[in-house]
Design a protein around this nucleic acid. Structure first.
Lengths: 233, 233
DNA sequence: GTTTGAAATATTGTTGACAATCGCCAACTG
DNA sequence: CAGTTGGCGATTGTCAACAATATTTCAAAC
């Protein structure tokens, strides 16, 4: 498994490492159970172990890896039914609550920013760029959380969003069409712009539940055994 | 603000620091906005800045502090309406889903473990030991999450539980009586033991919503549906 | 008196070396 | 031969010094 160096500059090494590993895990370059040795990573990414350690701890909080004292860190399983069953309602709780606060603050520039995201999503959808569509999807919803100025909601959203992203990547190929995703966001934006709060909430709620999107996933009541225990810190 | 040294031995310094700070924040020895300088902490707790940094990052993920690149870390506000409005439904989602899986695994020893927690809670309640009651309350629910063997649910629960604990400490003095808390857990346990899954779910759901417990708070937010609210933070 | 900008300061970000702990396995003991 | 113990290699945990960055200070110009 080869990890190439850092993406954008001008951010802390910890953030760069976290993003690199997150991406590798979500894209399947790293698979559940794969070991992540701090020294290997520090060699490959050409930095000391300090930032690596901090990034691994962060990914642990995001549920992407599991680590055990003095024994190491492994990639966790982000693709069980559990993620779907638990994350969708949590996401709905957060976004609906945040929307209530964000809507009051939204001005023309905010709607335009959302519109720009939707436009770019449309372009990405037409060229079949799944990764870009997903990133823009996340950006759209994150903007609502940001504008709500709710510290804990945004913080928790950041905590579950990496898992959601993993879910999207897994479901993407099963979705009927990328254009439909863009179209749904356009409708959602229209509802937000309408000034009808009830309509906005209802549209967002339905958008998140999104029956078509999850239709193809295996939905069994079978308990899913996770990649490892948690050593309650 | 004086922080005295470590609690239990035989755990990593990071965990000790995290617990010390968590406790100080929740008990109000550290207040929102207070600055947390890595060097000060490393002096006070007599260790290097490494473990301190990692503990601060963890608390950041738990929503207890907020940090800014090259600018420092401050204690966050864990006492807004937001915490209540968002955390209660999230907690309900996690615990109800986990209970479904845990109930199948529960055997006599598990029920007895829960029973022992309730008994001790009763004792703590009779002596007016709020802190102990709260810890046992958390332990009761955590045990359900543990037995569900759901990696992500437990992980997310650990993420929100520090905020819940803060909420409990704030509400404790307003609660009608500690005995009532213990009694409620005894009833909940009976429902779990009954073998009637529907009863178990319903009792847990009501237990979490817990109208009496939140009655005294400044406002009664309506979590999941559209309604009036206020500015937070 | 206000503004500007560069140096000084305070604070976090990063590093490489050293210490502690764990799992494994061979040697030992009964 | 089963079970225990003690060393060994692998890996994470911790430390103290150094680098990078943001904020503050303060003098000079307008």
């Amino acid at each position: 498994m080869e990890l190439r160096a850092v993406p954008r500059q001008n951010r802390s090494l910890r953030q760069q490492v976290a993003e690199t590993l997150r991406s590798a895990i979500i894209h399947g370059e790293l698979n559940p159970g794969d070991r992540l040795r701090e020294e290997d990573l520090s060699d490959q990414l050409d930095m000391s172990r300090g930032p690596i350690r901090e990034a691994l701890r962060q990914l642990e909080q995001e549920g992407l890896v599991a680590s055990f004292p003095y024994r190491g860190t492994v990639v966790a399983d982000v693709w069980g039914d559990e993620v779907l069953a638990v994350l969708v309602p949590i996401r709905a709780t957060l976004e609906l609550y945040a929307l209530r606060h964000a809507l009051r603050r939204f001005e023309e520039p905010d709607f335009n920013a959302l519109g720009a995201i939707v436009d770019e999503m449309q372009t990405a959808a037409e060229t079949g760029n799944l990764a870009r569509v997903i990133e823009l999807d996340m950006a759209f919803h994150r903007l609502i959380l940001e504008r709500s100025e709710l510290f804990h909601s945004l913080q928790l959203w950041e905590m579950i969003s990496p898992r959601m992203r993993g879910l999207f990547y897994r479901m993407g190929p099963h979705h009927t069409s990328l254009q439909e995703i863009a179209e749904q966001h356009r409708e959602l934006l229209a509802a937000l712009r309408s000034g009808d709060e009830q309509l906005a909430y209802a549209t967002l709620e339905e958008h998140i539940a999104e029956p078509r999107l999850y239709a193809r996933l295996p939905r069994g009541p079978e308990p899913h055994s996770a990649a490892g225990d948690d050593d309650a810190r």
